[in-house]
C-alpha cells in the first residue's frame, strides 16, 4: 500500500473535517458545562454520559511550544522539510496541534506568540489541515 498521510475520517471526526473543508474550526463542546474539549468524544469527558455539540470557535490562540523536524519520517511530507508542529492553546484551554511551514524563516511563528489557525492542504487535492501562522499574517497562501 502506498504511503499516505490522509487522516482517519468517520462518524466521530466528520464534523471536524467537514468544518475544515469549509475553512471553519469546529470542535466539540460539553452541553452541561459549556466547555470545549479535544480530542472528540461521543460523550462529554466532563460529566457522565454528557451530551456533546459541535460549535465553531475562534481560530486563534497561543503557541505554547513549537518543535521543528530536522529528520524526515514521512516520505510524503519530505518536500515540506523542515517543518514544525505547534501546540496551540485556544480559549477554554483547548490545545490543538498545527503544522508550521518554513519555521526557520523570518516572521515564522515562535513559541509564546499569538497565532492564527488556518486550514490549508499539504498537497493539492488533499483535505485541508490545521496550520499555525503569525496572528497578523494574511493571505500568504491565497
Amino acid at each position: 500500500m502506498a504511503e499516505s498521510h490522509a487522516p482517519p475520517r468517520n462518524s466521530l471526526s466528520d464534523p471536524y473535517w467537514a468544518g475544515a473543508e469549509a475553512g471553519r474550526l469546529v470542535i466539540p463542546h460539553c452541553l452541561a458545562t459549556g466547555r470545549p474539549f479535544w480530542p472528540p468524544s461521543p460523550s462529554s469527558p466532563f460529566v457522565t454520559a454528557g451530551a456533546v455539540e459541535w460549535r465553531a470557535v475562534a481560530p486563534e490562540g497561543e503557541a505554547i511550544t513549537i518543535v521543528t523536524y530536522r529528520r524526515i519520517f514521512q516520505q510524503t511530507l519530505a518536500h515540506h522539510s523542515p517543518y514544525a508542529i505547534a501546540l496551540v492553546e485556544l480559549a477554554g484551554q483547548v490545545r490543538l496541534q498545527a503544522h508550521v511551514s518554513a519555521p526557520d524563516a523570518e516572521g515564522a511563528p515562535r513559541a509564546g506568540d499569538r497565532v492564527r489557525l488556518r486550514f490549508i492542504p499539504l498537497a493539492e487535492g488533499e483535505v485541508p489541515v490545521l496550520h499555525a501562522e503569525p496572528a497578523q499574517a494574511g493571505g500568504r497562501h491565497g
Binding site: H5, A6, P7, T65, V67, Y69, F73, Q74, L77, H80, Y83, I85, L87, Q97, A98, H99, L122, V127, V129, L130
Partner: peptide
C-alpha cells in the same frame, strides 16, 4: 498526528 506531520514518538518528547 500523521496528517499534519506529527510523526514518531520523539516529537511528543520534544514538545
Amino acid at each position: 498526528e500523521g496528517a499534519i506531520g506529527m510523526a514518531s514518538p520523539i516529537a511528543g518528547a520534544a514538545m
